[in-house]
Every structure is written in structure tokens, then in C-alpha cells.
Design a binder for these strands. Structure first.
Lengths: 136, 136
DNA sequence: TATAAAAGGATCAAATTGGTCCTAAAGGTG
DNA sequence: CACCTTTAGGACCAATTTGATCCTTTTATA
């Protein structure tokens, strides 16, 4: 239950690599994919999502590629995960204003607790922290 | 991300219904399925899992059916969810002793925090509590 | 113009989810 | 015993999601 998909893993690995580059250095998707050991075309889609949200800045043509859109210390793990996996929602019933079967369901606020717990943890971790972490 | 599947929802609804019955009262799977508004054959599989773990006790033949295997106050939401969805593991890397790419990965202990946070919340809620909660 | 790079859409195979169906086994009843 | 009731277990299947790949378009540089 509650597993991150490969897309999420790839997203994290990819953006960590970008955060480890010298500031201002532009990276090609091919380079990032090779370093992060992720299928290139798949990673390209992931970085498109990042670009739409401003997590990275992309440029085309010769000399183009990707740079972080903000300092790595201002990008949280939550943003990265949500960029590709969508919002963190442990149960459908948290989406609509109420559950289907009339009024909030019995487990409703348990799921809300889980949601805010996870969000809080992921929000407390920045890509900078991850990028500076021990080798692995 | 991190969504409970229908199987998990059905499991919770089904066992709550059972917990709401008078102590010792045997319920047919057909009855539980109708009350919880869950496809009967699917719920039957779910209750098989419960029975294997002792969350419910089953008996066959005339007068057979299901009863809780323990007091509802001694069954946690975590047990119910894990019975059908498997262990709560936000990332594959928490399964093996180390991550694939040599040594624990950078996000490893973030996922461990998430895991224990969720487990703690779900372990703190019993089926009894849910069964006695407001109507819905 | 030619080249380099990302953007975006279409497509596709594999895995997972959500469920059905059928037969077997176990227990009760006349 | 024969028969009925009820769960157990296995096989199977359709829909959805996941994990990609490929092709064309757009944007930018030389």
C-alpha cells in the first residue's frame, strides 16, 4: 500500500542530479537520464511536468537544456513528488467535500490525519538537503 | 499518490458492519455485502484474508458465517488495511536491507519516517472506535 | 538554412486492480 | 446417507494504470 511509483523515484533522482550541478550549469535530458539511470524519453516527460510548475527552467536549441527554476533549498520533496504523482490523497473520500454515502465517512478524519502527516514530512525535506546527503 | 484501493475501502466497511452486530451474532457474507454495498464475491475474498489472520472467525454450513475473531477494540485499522493491501511501504527501498544502487538511498530515511508516521496513526484507531462513530 | 534541443501527442505492452465463476470442502438436517 | 447451506480456493477476465517508446512540432542557435 501507498507506494511511490517509478515515475516518482525517477523524478527525485533526476532533480537531485540537477541540484548537484554547479549553479547556472545547463544539463541535457540525455545527460540527466544517463546519470540518474532512467529511460531518457520517460524522464523527458517528467521534466516537462517540472517545467510547467516552474521547478525547472527549460530552454531549447543548441545550448539548451534544464536548470533548476529555484534554489534547491526552496524546492521541497513534496513538490517534486506531487508534480508527477498528483496530490497526496490516501483516500478518495478526501477529494469531494463529503463521502458518497451521505456525510463524511467514519474513517474520514483518520485519512485526513495521514494526509497531513505525510505532507508535513515531505514538505520538511528540500532537494538541497537530499543533494548534499551522503553518496548513494 | 498513496491511495487506498477499493479492496481496502471494502475491507473497512465490511469489518465495521461486523463490529456493529450484537456480540456472538453470526453474519452471512451475503448480508455483510448488502449492508456494506460491496460486490459479494469480492468481499468473500477479503473475508478469507481476514479469516487467515484471525481477524474474523468463519464457519461453514447451515448457521455458518462470520464473527469477529477478537473484540473490535483489539483490532486496529492498520491490521485491516494491511490484511488486504499488504504492508505499508511508501517506497520499495524500504523492503530490502539496502537500496539497489549501493547503500541506502538519499531519501531512504524520509520514507522510513513516512512509513512509521502512517503506521502509528492507523495503529491508534480501532474498529470499535470506527463502529461506534457517527452514522455515515 | 541546417542543426540542436525540448514540447507534445499518439501509441503500446506489462502490471495491477476489480471483479466473476465454478468446483471443492465442511458442517448441519431430515 | 442424501441433501442443503455456507465458506474456501482456484481459474479466469475486463478495465485501468503504469511504464515506457516513437514521431512530429516548436523554439532557439550557428
Amino acid at each position: 500500500m501507498m507506494e511511490l511509483t517509478r515515475k516518482g523515484e525517477y523524478a527525485i533522482r533526476g532533480i537531485i542530479y540537477l541540484a548537484q550541478q554547479p549553479p547556472g550549469r545547463v544539463s541535457l535530458i540525455s545527460e540527466i537520464a544517463a546519470a540518474a539511470e532512467v529511460p531518457q524519453t520517460f524522464l523527458a516527460k517528467i521534466f516537462q511536468s517540472f517545467a510547467k510548475l516552474g521547478l525547472v527552467t527549460s530552454s531549447r536549441g543548441t545550448g539548451g537544456g534544464f536548470v533548476l527554476g529555484r534554489p534547491a533549498s526552496a524546492i521541497t520533496l513534496r513538490e517534486v513528488v506531487e508534480a508527477v504523482e498528483g496530490p497526496i490523497v490516501p483516500n478518495r473520500c478526501l477529494l469531494g467535500s463529503a463521502c458518497e454515502r451521505g456525510g463524511p465517512c467514519r474513517v474520514h478524519d483518520v485519512w485526513r490525519q495521514v494526509q497531513s502527516g505525510v505532507v508535513e514530512i515531505l514538505d520538511s525535506v528540500t532537494i538541497d538537503t537530499l543533494a548534499r546527503g551522503r553518496e548513494g
